[in-house]
């Protein structure tokens, strides 16, 4: 019974993660400029990778490998916003202006 519940949780988390990766990819394709694409990559990939890694950790749970996966999860959670910020900062320093909806005035 518990085994089945754990399996269900693993599958649910993995599918959730895959859906967020799909959303992130869709964002990369649809969003209009560099900065907004970084939003999609930063947020969706963090949660997508987080959910999939959590699913894997639960799947191998009593094994020490689970700890490795949790360390990996922590690394993703820290590096994702950092790299998103680094990309946006580099773009800003080259003078790239963010896309604005046509007709809106810059403030």
């Amino acid at each position: 019974m518990t085994g089945m519940l754990l399996h269900a949780l693993t599958i649910a988390l993995a599918v959730t993660g895959a859906l967020f990766f799909l959303a992130g990819t869709l964002g990369l394709l649809r969003l209009p400029d560099f900065y907004s694409r970084v939003h999609a990559a930063t947020k969706c990939d963090t949660v997508g990778a987080g959910a999939i890694l959590l699913a894997l950790a639960i799947h191998v749970a009593p094994h020490p490998e689970a700890l490795k996966i949790l360390v990996l999860l922590l690394l993703v959670l820290l590096s994702s916003p950092t790299s998103g910020h680094a990309l946006a900062r580099a773009a800003h320093h080259t003078g790239l202006e963010p896309w604005r909806r046509p007709g809106e005035r810059a403030r």
Partner: peptide, 24 residues
């Protein structure tokens, strides 16, 4: 909050109107 922000981006990008008005 992290989870909510991923849901936020996901909802924006699946919306056919792409409801964003980016600003700095």
């Amino acid at each position: 909050t992290v989870f909510r922000s991923a849901v936020h981006v996901a909802r924006v990008v699946v919306d056919p109107r792409l409801p964003i008005s980016p600003r700095l």
